[in-house]
């Protein structure tokens, strides 16, 4: 029995390390920024500079904004411009700052069964996929990418509910893997596609349409709505991220030699 007691005492002692610190920030962001590895470069440099620890919760944009609305995080770094503007308008966020952008692409099987490759317009391409009833995998999770995809279907004048349209309800990486396995089309941010490129056969078929522009914004949660949030810490991070120091890190971040995000905060 003594050994068991000893074990319990050890456990209780180790529990002392469980308490959180006060000099910390909780940031909700999207899976695309986390999965790309950008945050693993950005956050340590900020932490080293200020001593403020940042805890990142990576979810879809819809969920990230919901976490901001309920006051469960101090700031959000997301990509769904309209939803972000609404978030600020309704008073949940203080102000939206441009951080960076990349772009969405439509990817699909190399033999392109629906024949969309020649298209310049993303909406037109979706229309062709719909007409051909080729398989398309949607995120279906209210993420920034999903919101953009819905916007494009609306542009195409199609409300896809048929069998060829599959809503996965998962993150970007999982959806690309699924599309690869099913030889289907899907829309993704370029960063996640590049990260997975070696493991899949799907190719970029549509790119460069201005509608596929994918801007990221950062917003501090309004302390008037949620007095407990670490507003000073949040503005500190936003100032650093949108200043040359943070922007330079974003611009020089590369994965397999490719630029994933283009800084937007300074001209």
């Amino acid at each position: 029995m003594k050994k068991l007691y000893l074990l319990m005492i050890l456990l209780v002692l180790s529990a002392a390390t469980l308490a959180g610190q006060s000099g910390e920030l909780k940031m909700a962001t999207t899976t695309s920024t986390e999965n790309s590895g950008l945050l693993e470069v950005l956050i340590p440099s900020f932490e080293k500079l200020t001593g403020i620890k940042i805890k990142v919760i990576a979810v879809g944009t819809g969920k990230a904004l919901a976490l901001g609305r309920s006051g469960d995080v101090d700031l959000v770094l997301v990509h769904a411009l309209k939803a972000e503007q609404l978030f600020v308008q309704q008073g949940y966020g203080v102000k939206r700052y441009n951080v960076m952008h990349n772009d969405f692409v439509i990817i699909g099987p190399a033999d392109d069964p629906a024949g969309i490759k020649a298209q310049k317009s993303a909406a037109r391409a979706l229309k062709i996929i719909g007409a051909a009833e080729s398989s398309f995998i949607s995120r279906g999770d209210d993420s920034g990418t999903h919101k953009k995809e819905i916007e494009l279907w609306q542009q195409a004048g199609i409300s896809p509910k048929e069998k060829w349209y599959k809503e996965a309800g998962q993150g970007m990486g999982a959806v690309i893997t699924m599309a690869d396995a099913l030889q289907a089309y899907t829309m993704t941010d370029r960063g996640t596609y590049l990260a997975l490129q070696d493991k899949i056969e799907l190719m970029v078929l549509i790119e460069g349409d201005p509608l596929l522009f994918n801007p990221y914004g950062i917003i501090a949660v309004n302390p008037e709505k949620h007095p407990h949030v670490n507003y000073d810490g949040a503005t500190g991070f936003i100032e650093w991220l949108t200043a040359p120091a943070g922007q330079k890190i974003i611009g020089s971040f590369r994965k397999k030699g490719e630029i994933l995000f283009y800084p937007d905060a300074i001209e």
Binding site: T31, N35, K55, V56, A58, G173, T177, L196, K199
Partner: peptide, 22 residues
């Protein structure tokens, strides 16, 4: 837990994350 790196990331949430990254 939120799968926060260096804080609440456990083996299972790390497995989920790495799976999602392929």
């Amino acid at each position: 837990g939120g799968n926060i790196r260096w804080y609440t990331r456990t083996l299972t949430t790390a497995i989920a994350l790495e799976t999602s990254k392929g």
